[in-house]
């Protein structure tokens, strides 16, 4: 049955045009000669040069990258532990509170999370800087990681773990040799999600950072508040380029795996 009518074609075209035209315009105007972003004055890559000579942007990029690597790694460890507890630990005192604390940050407005964490850091007298931003990002990102990992943990066959234990594995060995390889794709996508969320966050970082650690989104925000600038277009183009390459690679890999799996299944079916 094929119900792909002209109506569907129109709504797909319109929807994707709406999603992509603004980004295409942004990328196009990063190669504009003119300082005025809305007037096309010929092709030029000079704004990329300006960007790489701007020490403030490079410093901010370095801070952002460090924060993102540390917080996403920490969030992946804590989030995987939390997911394991949610799915496998059974009942324990305070379980409801625990799962509430895992899901609540997902719907919490950034302004509230940021304010609350800042007041905590001031309360305990922690100097604001890279460390406080890492702590803040780890806290909300671990919840995303745990949601991603727990959905994978919930669907896989627990008897595999039991078999490993029966065959003489210690619980730690069973986790390392059986569970971890199975949930690995979810753990990796959890890490990527945490990394992206950290790179992207403006509001929580603005609240929890100090003058010594300006992240890239904070820098971008203060620059674009004054209006559109071609340097920011160049920076956006680089970021969009990296993300696009990453997403396309990931989808090609997953497609190849799917094809291979299907081929193996067919081969197995023929062999029987």
């Amino acid at each position: 049955m094929n119900r792909f009518s002209w109506f569907n074609a129109v709504s797909l075209t319109f929807g994707f045009a709406f999603l992509y035209i603004p980004m295409i315009i942004l990328v196009t105007y990063s190669f504009n000669e003119s300082k005025l972003v809305t007037v096309w004055a010929g092709f030029s890559t000079k704004w990329y040069g300006e960007l790489f000579r701007d020490q403030a942007f490079l410093d901010a990029a370095w801070v952002t990258l460090r924060v993102a690597v540390f917080s996403s790694t920490l969030a992946t460890i804590l989030g995987t532990m939390a997911a394991y507890v949610l799915i496998r630990a059974g009942r324990f005192t305070g379980r409801t509170l625990f799962s509430g604390m895992i899901y609540a940050p997902l719907v919490m407005p950034d302004v509230i999370t940021g304010l609350a964490l800042l007041l905590l850091f001031i309360g305990v007298g922690l100097d604001r800087g890279v460390l406080t931003v890492v702590l803040a990002h780890t806290t909300f990102a671990m919840c995303y990681v745990s949601v991603v990992v727990s959905s994978r943990l919930a669907t896989f066959d627990q008897s595999l773990e039991e078999a490993a234990l029966d065959l003489g594995c210690s619980p730690a060995q069973a986790f390392r040799l059986v569970t971890l390889p199975i949930i690995a794709p979810a753990v990796i996508s959890g890490w990527l999600l945490a990394f992206t969320l950290s790179l992207d966050d403006l509001v929580i970082a603005s609240f929890t950072t100090g003058p010594s650690a300006t992240t890239l989104p904070i820098k971008i925000f203060s620059a674009v508040r004054l209006g559109v600038s071609p340097e920011i277009n160049a920076l956006s183009t680089i970021m969009i380029g990296i993300v696009t390459a990453g997403v396309i690679t990931a989808s090609v890999i997953s497609k190849r795996n799917m094809v291979r799996q299907r081929r193996e299944e067919q081969a197995a079916a023929r062999a029987q």
Binding site: L26, V243, V247
Partner: peptide, 23 residues
């Protein structure tokens, strides 16, 4: 993939893209 791609792209940049269009 085309629906998910913008989701991975910076939120701030996607909002910024409209500033040049709507001014």
């Amino acid at each position: 993939m085309l629906i998910i791609l913008p989701f991975w792209t910076s939120f701030l940049i996607r909002v910024y893209a409209w500033m040049g269009i709507l001014s």
